[in-house]
Nucleic acid binder design. Structure first.
Lengths: 207, 207
DNA sequence: CCAGAAGGCAACCAGCAGTTGCCTTCAGCG
DNA sequence: CGCTGAAGGCAACTGCTGGTTGCCTTCTGG
């Protein structure tokens, strides 16, 4: 039997896929996940709603596919390794907001904002999880270089930076200033030994 | 004409108000804001949906009233002033998660998780904004005491701690460990001078 | 040129916010 | 005690949206 012409750019199907994903991207950036109306996507894509549902059984599936496509270029380039953790972190995080076009950045920010939503969390989680090891390695290298005290919890460092960065959602646009602040503050904490693995940090009186 | 028997505890109306708000609290803790079904609230409160809508014109209004009631005891006690910023912050933030009963804590956490939602943000914002000055004063005192370098941006310190704390939402329950981590890390950053007002912090090579 | 995959169309179901019109109950005043 | 008006109950309804279904049309490649 004839297979779907996936991958053969220019086929009827692929044209539809591209148009739907493009439309979905725009709608996601505009209205966020919760506000994304399938009818609207269909109409913008100049495609029937049924067509969308035939290929992606739910909104979650559609957005998952979209995120996957968004992150494709990202997936191909390795994480930065500048020899200095601060620069590595700055660059690595900055990339998250400049995936491809401007729209994609906004769409991703909207998703982050809605990460409380189990569906969204699953989507983001799946996308991020794959590179967790690489990210951790980035921090570990810094520890080995002596930039951070031995015993520092690499994952914790990342979690903290992410927590701060993600706090800046769609409303207030992510900017370099905030990102820098997040990275420097967390690194200062780590250097002060606040982020050792396992044991509770003891209170430190100011000197 | 006879007025509503508001305030006269035990009246029919007040009993209804209490039951509806209690029910709403439970539902909010269980299902979050977006998942809060008015029919369910009505049914749990053993009250008719119409009755709810007559008093609170929308879900947002209902939750606003609920939050207002939740925060009443909090509003009455001043923020801590232990003479040490770390303790102040720890205690002040810890309170947010122990407003009254256990349920209220969970409900509040759910709200925080959904703060991306404009409606929710308005609700939270209104509740929090009122004490912004007090919080800032807490940090300013510490600067005056010399705990933090002069010129430190008090609001920024608070924003950062909040960013980290809030990252722990409903799924992973807020715990003292994470809170401590957040406070200590941000304070370490602040002591290192990362959070001066206005000017961009210069990169600091590790010593 | 034709079989089968993919797309279009229209009507439909289900869940839920919010509404409406009308009836019932209750508190309290005369 | 009985009346009055406010507050509550009830049931049916609108409107929106995600997701479904059955059937017909179009495109594509062998």
């Amino acid at each position: 039997m004839r297979r779907r012409t996936q991958g053969v750019l220019g086929g009827r199907s692929d044209r539809v896929v591209r148009r739907v994903l493009d439309a979905a991207l725009g709608e996601l950036a505009r209205s966020g996940y919760a506000g994304l109306r399938m009818d609207e996507v269909a109409s913008v894509a100049a495609v029937n709603k049924t067509t969308i549902y035939r290929r992606w059984p739910s909104r979650a599936a559609l957005v998952t596919a979209l995120v996957d496509r968004m992150r494709t270029p990202l997936r191909e380039s390795p994480l930065p390794d500048t020899g200095r953790l601060e620069s590595d972190l700055l660059e690595a995080f900055a990339r998250r907001f400049t995936v491809g076009r401007e729209v994609a950045g906004r769409a991703w920010a909207r998703l982050l904002d809605e990460r409380f939503n189990p569906e969204v969390e699953a989507i983001i989680g799946a996308a991020v999880e794959t590179r967790r090891g690489e990210w951790r390695a980035m921090v570990t290298r810094a520890i080995d270089r002596g930039e951070l005290p031995p015993g520092t919890d690499a994952q914790l460092v990342l979690d903290l930076v992410r927590a701060i960065v993600d706090a800046r959602g769609a409303a207030r646009r992510m900017d370099r200033t905030w990102l820098t602040l997040a990275v420097r503050t967390v690194l200062a904490g780590a250097r002060a030994g606040t982020l050792r693995r396992g044991r509770q940090p003891r209170p430190r009186r100011r000197g």
